[in-house]
Amino acid sequence: MSDHATMQAIARLVPEGSRVLDLGCGDGALLDLLQRERGCSGYGIELADANVLACVRRGVNVIQLNLDEGLAMFGDNSFDVVLQIDTLQHLRNAEVMLRETARVGQSGIVAFPNFAHWPNRLSVLRGRMPVTRRLPYQWYDTPNIRVGTYKDFEALAQKNRLRILDAFGLQEGQAVRFLPNALAGTAVFHFERSA
């Protein structure tokens, strides 16, 4: 997910000058990009020591927190945009965090591996869990505790009364707007709370 074209595609969704909270910010590359190229400010949340260190090294604000403990530290609407880029699949409380994302941010952007991408379907049809560039792990050692599809997320968003501002797939850094559930390895949703 750290490839440049994909990061650029996500960054384009973030309005210039936004205050951003990046949940599971990794090494801080996306926040760094948003700060340098789009005049954004904000914080990353990370659990892994090595990633916290990488963020401090880059000069990106980072708060070391376990997202499974929630976002109690952050007030309602305290950010313009809350990002969950390749984070959802690691969360035990994915639905709670989705609601928290919508509470803390004016808008939220979620991106995650789309399990319904056709090579994954093909693999399952053959009787085996997929191992691909996007989902590179064997089923027994994957850090992804959730697998979901583009369509699954649409349903979850609806259940939580989120208004989808934009949604598309990403494949090789390119937006996929035709049959994204089948043709894209990554699902991207930009949403806000319904009034």
Binding site: N61, Q64, M73, F74
Partner: peptide, 10 residues
Amino acid sequence: LENRRDVSYA
């Protein structure tokens, strides 16, 4: 955070 200050926390 409430004051929007730059802060990192380890």
